[in-house]
Amino acid sequence: MTARYRPLWLILGLFLLPLAIGGGLFAYGWRPAAPAANGDLLNPARTLPELLGADGRPLDPATFTDHWTLLVASAGPCEDACRQWIVATRQVHVALYKQMNRVQRVWLTDQPHPDATPLLTLQPDLHTAIAASEAARQRFDLDRAGPQVFVVDPQGRLILRYAADADPRGLLKDMERLLRYAWAG
């Protein structure tokens, strides 16, 4: 190798070195850690059961299409922990800023005639839904203690679940990531 070709070999080596390292890592089975969701990923995604509106009539399934939905599910009346999650989902909704028109919020209960007036006076953009059937109660795990938050995709499928003690900042991070990469909604 003459001195005249040394820069050419050096440049070629700089381009080929990352390919050789990447190929070696792939050959030995190393894979980067996948970014994990902060909530529990529901795999497979759950379809939404038939729900009732606050007026007791069946809710139109189109209510959950074309929007991402943050759904706070709690059995019985909305107690303190439920109210805290409703406030937290409102804060997440506002923190999404430019993307907030792609997201809606729903409070789901199993009470036949929920009193949503105290919630709606402070947060008029909150929708109310009722899980009247046993299948709906099971789909939203309403037998668990405390409220849970579900993320519903624009096709009306439950994809993420957050426990009562989850950190709302994790919900915000997941929603930002979903809205950044999703075309739907």
Rank of each mutant, 00 (worst) to 15 (best):
A3K: 15
L12K: 10
L12S: 15
G13Y: 11
F15V: 09
L17E: 06
G22I: 13
G24C: 13
L25I: 04
P32T: 05
A34R: 12
A34G: 03
A37V: 13
L41G: 00
L42K: 08
P44C: 09
P44K: 13
L52Q: 15
G53W: 03
D55G: 08
R57Y: 06
L59Q: 06
T65W: 05
H67K: 09
W68P: 00
A73G: 01
D80W: 12
R83E: 06
V87N: 08
A88R: 11
T89E: 13
Q91W: 11
Q91N: 15
V92N: 03
Y97D: 12
Y97G: 11
K98S: 14
M100K: 12
W107Q: 02
P112Y: 01
A116M: 08
A116S: 11
T117F: 03
P118S: 06
L119V: 01
A131V: 00
E134Y: 01
A136G: 02
R137T: 01
D143I: 07
R144P: 07
A145W: 05
A145H: 04
G146P: 00
G146C: 08
G146F: 06
G146T: 08
F150S: 04
V151T: 02
V152K: 02
D153F: 07
Q155D: 08
Q155M: 02
Q155V: 10
Y162V: 06
A163F: 04
D165G: 05
P168L: 00
R169W: 00
L171S: 07
L172F: 09
R177E: 12
Y181N: 15
Y181G: 13
G185V: 01
